[in-house]
Design a protein around this nucleic acid. Structure first.
Length: 353
DNA sequence: CATCGATGTTGAG
DNA sequence: TCAACCTCGATGG
């Protein structure tokens, strides 16, 4: 259930802990045995995210393309820093700890899938557990059952424990395991997982709309503008169309439209250029915050009290997403949910009328 | 224990 | 338009 921000964070994890290292690749589940054999033993040379697509390059221009789809997730373990990054600037009130960001720790963490549980993936601070245990630092959606935070930090335990008990046994259906001496990444439930050459990668990227963290901001804005302005398709659908703009999913779609006070049914062709440009810029902003914090923080701008109350329950932390029947935070009108192209679309019929 | 649904995408009809 | 893909936590009995 990852949207663009999660994939960029995953790409960063690979960049930090796998790129430059020889990787043992396997498919514990067996369903990707052939592809894993192609990768096995090669050194990872690059890690990139474009929209919701992840591209990992190995020696000799061999690329692994992964799309997590709706179920997919990466679990990291070993000497993997859990940290939040500082690539994108924002005033985000990151709840993630920055204390763990500089030094790799013995942890496990999940990136990608999310659940409605109280604890969300990416924002859980990493903690260090004993030699034979691992703590979870998730990004995406950690499995509650596997989330066992240490009661207290034990810095020294890292060195003492080393990587004893590493690597952990694969749990559940692991399509691909990428293993270095110090870190391991398990992929489960992807909608796409394939080995491509550089041409194949370019073909995929060419079909994608601009990504604010990949494309030049001005050029990306123009590209999105061109792809929206002539379409007689509701903007609510265009924002989800990865060939129009990359990385937006169902949550960001609903929230971006509310933040713009825009009717999801308005046709792309009916929108003033400024409105379309505004959507691109707000997406850039939200994506940056999301990558920085690992959370989909879409309610900046709320006054402090309202924000505190809203953020208390993590299941109800948005303007409109999943708030069907609840009063609009701005005008009190009941939030509406309707199905569009098989996905649930939430909006305020008054604010976004 | 069975069933549902989820921050996605593809492809059949 | 809708099922299929694929995984697993939440939900309900």
């Amino acid at each position: 259930m990852p949207e663009g921000h999660s994939i960029h964070r995953i790409a960063r994890q690979f960049g930090r802990h796998f790129v430059g290292a020889p990787v043992a690749a396997s498919s514990p589940q067996g369903r990707f045995a052939e592809g894993a054999a192609l990768i096995d033993g090669r050194t990872m040379t690059e890690s990139r995210a474009v929209g919701k697509q992840l591209f990992l390059e190995f020696d000799e221009a061999m690329w692994l393309r992964v799309h997590l789809g709706i179920y997919g997730a990466w679990d990291f373990a070993g000497a993997v820093a859990t940290a939040t990054a500082r690539t994108v600037s924002s005033e985000s009130e990151s709840s993630s700890s920055t204390r763990s960001r500089d030094h790799p720790r013995l942890v496990t963490g999940r990136m990608g899938q999310t659940g409605m549980r109280g604890v969300t993936d990416e924002d859980a601070p990493a903690t260090v557990v004993g030699a034979h245990e691992h703590s979870l630092a998730s990004i995406g959606a950690p499995r509650r059952t596997r989330l066992r935070m240490a009661e207290q930090e034990r810095e020294s335990a890292i060195d003492d424990a080393g990587l004893e008990g590493f690597p952990p046994e694969p749990i559940g259906q692991v399509r691909v395991r990428l293993l270095t001496e110090r870190a391991v990444a398990d992929l489960r439930g992807p909608t796409a997982c394939e080995v491509l050459d550089a041409t194949g990668v370019q073909r995929v990227i060419d079909a994608l709309g601009p990504d604010p963290l990949v494309d030049d901001l001005e050029a990306g804005e123009e590209r999105m503008l061109q792809r929206v302005r002539r379409r007689r398709v509701p903007i609510g659908l265009l924002l989800m169309d990865q060939s129009v703009v990359s990385g937006i999913g169902n949550v960001y779609r609903a929230e971006l439209l509310f933040r713009a006070r825009l009717d999801p049914h308005a046709l792309g062709a009916s929108l003033p250029d400024d409105v379309i440009r505004g959507l691109w810029r707000d997406w850039r902003h939200l994506l940056g915050v999301g990558v920085d914090t690992g959370q989909m923080l879409t309610m900046d701008g709320l006054d402090e009290e309202a924000r505190r109350l809203a953020l208390r329950d993590r299941a109800d932390r948005h303007w409109v997403y999943k708030r069907e029947g609840l009063p609009c935070r701005v005008c009190g009108t009941h939030i509406v949910m309707e199905t569009a192209a098989g996905r649930k679309l939430y909006y305020c019929p008054s604010c976004q009328g």
